[in-house]
Design a protein around this nucleic acid. Structure first.
Lengths: 209, 209
DNA sequence: TCTGATTTTAATCATTTGATTAAAAAAGTT
DNA sequence: AACTTTTTTAATCAAATGATTAAAATCAGA
């Protein structure tokens, strides 16, 4: 009677476990830094299973990437298009939602920025989504702009500022936590504050000069 | 006098060429994505030379990293400490200098952020520099703050905002260029504009609410 | 020019890493 | 149970990769 009990506590299918492990590691460290054996270990499965289910490391990564891009962009469009809200309300709502999402996925922005460098061949799948985001911005910043009219330049600066205020803290999170001696909770509290502050600041920026 | 002519066009010693190639590639793509053979090829030298001069890929990377960190921080301290300038003037000058430097080294911020994640063992060499930056900020934002007094929270938010406005565009540069269809020159022109705009915006933010 | 040190090269090694294979184990069907 | 299919494993492969070595080329000083 050797393996009478056989620990089959199997939380979730192997396929699912692999995908989750891959998502965690890839998002955290990027494609090159993660080895297939790391993923197998993290998922607690045999290395061969990875190739059995996903054919290759790259295929697995692609899946993770598309999902991550979706999550990164997802939240923006619906709110921006909501006609029953004033533009200002939209920005408050977007900011709140977005920071909320980022608190749960703090490594996401860095992952995205990392992908946007490197080979753009993979980005075909997400290119149209990017365009949509730009259009959403375009239709929402017109009346708030200082001069009153929207230019190419305006839009670019605005995106940089808005995304910078929301996203940058998460990209720089490890540095900010080290430099300012912040615990994870303290960092999250700061982000919580920014839900209300960023729209305020953004308004001040647009009115400035 | 044998080798009077000898094609010794040799721009720089092999050691220098290796370091430059390494700096370029590591800064662009990170440690894992760059292979020692890539560096050798880029430098136009034999692979063994890399190990002859620098012992290992990691040693070479460490050199590049420390130099990059120096460049990243360098410019801040002297200006922040300049007593002959008003605080506002300091921010204008820092912003201008910093954007100038980043235009010449657009991949630097991403490299730095990338290093701050990952193993913090290597960061011991740059830790004190980080602390200095924080102190410099601390001594320069007091009087401009809305409430008049500086708190832990204030500093952190301020760093996020200021660095976000200056640095984030360079981190998101590939994305911003794709989404907004910007040429390299157009991007640089935007950055040029921000030299004057960021201090303005920053002021507006601090006064806001 | 000769000699010894330095620099560079080609060839090779050992490990890592992504992937495959053949077979065992488990689950499902009749 | 008998079998068929699906899932999982251990063993192994081939290529990529960081590193080393011994010898060749170059250089510096007499």
């Amino acid at each position: 009677m050797k393996v009478a009990k056989k620990k089959k506590i199997d939380d979730g299918s192997a396929e699912q476990k692999i995908k989750e492990a891959a998502r965690k590691l890839f998002t955290e460290k990027g494609f090159d830094a993660v080895k297939t054996r790391d993923i197998a270990a993290e998922a607690g499965i045999n290395l061969a299973l990875l190739n059995y289910y996903f054919r290759s490391k790259e295929k697995l990564f692609d899946i993770v990437m598309v999902e991550n891009f979706e999550q990164f962009i997802q939240q923006l469009i619906p709110v921006f298009g909501n006609e029953s809200l004033t533009v200002e309300e939209r920005f408050v709502q977007i900011t709140t939602r977005y920071i909320e999402m980022l608190k749960a996925n703090p490594d996401l922005p860095f992952f995205i920025m990392n992908q946007m460098r490197g080979d753009s061949s993979k980005l075909l799948a997400v290119r149209e989504k990017m365009t949509k985001v730009r259009e959403a911005f375009l239709q929402n910043i017109g009346k708030n702009m200082a001069g009153g009219k929207v230019t190419q330049t305006n839009i670019a600066h605005f995106m940089m500022n808005y995304m910078g205020l929301i996203i940058f803290p998460f990209i720089a999170r490890p540095m900010l936590m080290k430099v300012n001696n912040l615990s994870k909770k303290e960092f999250d509290d700061l982000m919580e504050e920014r839900k209300a502050l960023v729209p305020l600041w953004l308004n001040a920026i647009m009115k400035a000069k």
